[in-house]
Design a protein around this nucleic acid. Structure first.
Lengths: 351, 351
DNA sequence: AGGTACCGTGGGAGCGCTCCCATCGGTGAT
DNA sequence: ATCACCGATGGGAGCGCTCCCACGGTACCT
């Protein structure tokens, strides 16, 4: 018995019980104070707070998690290898927003990479163990099984870009349609008429929406859509080069290019330059993401900016409310849980 | 009572007890199987494993943490703002090594930024709550109170660069002295005689060691050390420029520069170019870190490579053994807990 | 045959907390 | 004065696990 007690008292951390004794109150009362319950008199609260301070009491997370069946942690799951995470500013901006918003809470943020199969298996195990109260999912492909696993395990989750128009998970996204649209409208306003579009990977819903925006902007302005002016890319620089080459071959007279990402725009720029087309006088160029690449390109690239940091913040908000709503069995299926944030066209010299 | 039971059975996760019943054994036996104890007969083990599989049993982490007084998690603490973390490849390489090594274990890695005061206070609270079994500390300045806090809380920790020659915490470092030495030796072998050194921030122990290496290489080769050839930098590009300007003013005849980081070398290169000195014919240039900058510089920069990924791996190894050693009160103070890994000079055209 | 180990095993006690119910005194209504 | 009620409070029970002690059985010794 004595040895038993000694085992866990290592470190001598005070317990709730000890704080209660010190403050001359019961265990329940201390718990109420710690958790900010209003059902405590001011005098008692003060006494307890004093005891907490004197003893340097810090709640034992494990005990709390066990008793209350929650972990006070949420995971940001990145289904990509670490490498891409560091390479793309998208993630760091997102993390910034998420980190800022979560730091107002008691929640702990875990960053989990699930790029390899092995990592994904680990993640599945991890989620099955319910080690987090909720999950933030970024950069998910249409055929990813993760979202299903999550809903099967009944773990609250928010996704950063919906997988389709019928996304069932709560999501936060930027207005890809509007972004594509504004790029094209800007080009039209600048007098361009043969506007090409290098798309992103079309299994990414957002990339599709940008194409939709491109199409509708043209149609609404009374122009036709020439399918020869649309070429799929894959979000890489090399993909941008290839697409640009094809477009130039098909429509040598094109006078503007709207690329689905800055990186692809960079590839397109190289080809245009090699072909002797000057930017923007011969061909106007617009990218997407407003990344560092855009600012440093020669000439500086006009680009569609997404409020990524803001997206991160909103994702946390959504997730926290999702988690909070799990307690009462209130039906709330009709509530709007798809957030769409406006984009902004950043004008530079390339257009 | 019933309502009580229902509360926590949400999700219907099977418990140890249920697995035990299913396998027709006692709770203790299941626990032994789960934890890989050898004191279980093969037949029993098989039965338990079958029951675990059938029920889809996953241990409850919180319960385990509470009972065993451990968390199975370790934190990688970065005492810098997120921004720097993403900007410097040092961190991503380190994370890669750490992630690779830890994925062989059951441990969970947490990434914690502690750049701002607010974040640091949160971290202190976090550590006080003993929410991790151990801590990895990277990029710690000499006057950082974090290491003391850690040892006061008796939390195992490993530091990535010792703060001084008398570092008490277990540490993993690259051989900064040898790195500086090899750079200078290479320059001497190339016939250079007036070799300047732009140092890193001298409150960083590793930067001091590089200077020591620089000095000793010169002395051991029978040369004198001209203090006018040593100028402190601050690891930034701008600092590199400033230092280079000063050095050129003091010793216009210098024919080689060893910079304490690639970034500073980039700054130095700009000044050299502006002054009409060509690299490497007029002035040889060597950097430190072998980062992407070095590869992409014009001309490509000779640089000292540190095995950062390997350092990450070794840090985990050290930390895990630290944690394991906490159990028995065996005295082991004399053991070697300072690991130093060799650097490598990567030859390119700048020297 | 009796004794001594030791192995594999079952299950009690306890980790520190939350949740909930019972209790207590005080208040306003009757 | 009596009663119903309410807010504040104490503490039992339970969360799911690990640790450890005790127990029965077998193997080996004397």
């Amino acid at each position: 018995m004595a040895s038993h007690g000694a085992r866990s008292r290592s470190g001598g951390r005070p317990t709730l019980e000890e704080v209660a004794a010190r403050a001359g109150v019961g265990r329940g009362t201390v718990s109420r104070v710690i958790n900010g319950s209003p059902r405590v008199s001011d005098a008692t609260r003060a006494a307890v707070e004093a005891a907490v301070a004197e003893l340097g009491y810090v709640p034992n997370t494990a005990a709390r998690a066990l008793a209350a069946n929650r972990t006070d942690a949420i995971a940001l799951v990145v289904p990509e290898p670490e490498t891409r995470f560091f390479a793309e500013p998208y993630f760091s901006d997102m993390l910034k927003g998420v980190g800022a918003e979560i730091s107002d809470t008691e929640m702990q943020l875990l960053l989990i990479f699930a790029g390899s199969d092995r990592e994904r298996r680990r993640l599945a195990q991890y989620l099955a163990a319910h080690r987090v109260d909720g999950v933030l999912l970024v950069s998910v492909h249409a055929d990813d099984p993760l979202p299903d696993l999550l809903s099967q395990l009944e773990i609250p989750a928010v996704i950063s870009g919906p997988r389709s128009a019928g996304e069932t998970l709560p999501s936060v996204d930027s207005d890809n349609y509007g972004g594509g649209r504004s790029a094209v409208e800007h080009l039209l306003a600048g007098g361009r008429r043969a506007i090409a579009h290098i798309t992103g990977r079309l299994d990414v819903y957002g990339a599709q929406r940008r194409v939709d925006g491109y199409r509708d902007a043209l149609l609404d302005a009374g122009h036709e859509v020439d399918e020869r002016l649309i070429e799929p890319g894959d979000f890489t620089e090399e993909g941008g080069r290839r697409a640009m080459t094809k477009l130039l071959a098909r429509r040598p007279d094109l006078d503007a290019v709207f690329a689905g990402s800055d990186v692809m725009a960079a590839g397109a720029r190289q080809v245009l330059r090699e072909e002797g087309r000057s930017i923007p006088s011969d061909v106007a160029l617009i990218g997407y993401d407003d990344s560092a690449i855009a600012r440093h390109m020669d000439p500086p690239l006009t680009s569609v900016r997404q409020p990524i940091e803001e997206m991160g913040r909103r994702m946390i908000d959504l997730l926290l409310s999702e988690i909070a709503d799990r307690r009462p069995a209130v039906s709330r299926g009709l509530e709007r849980r798809q957030v769409v944030l406006a984009t902004e066209l950043v004008h530079r010299t390339s257009s």
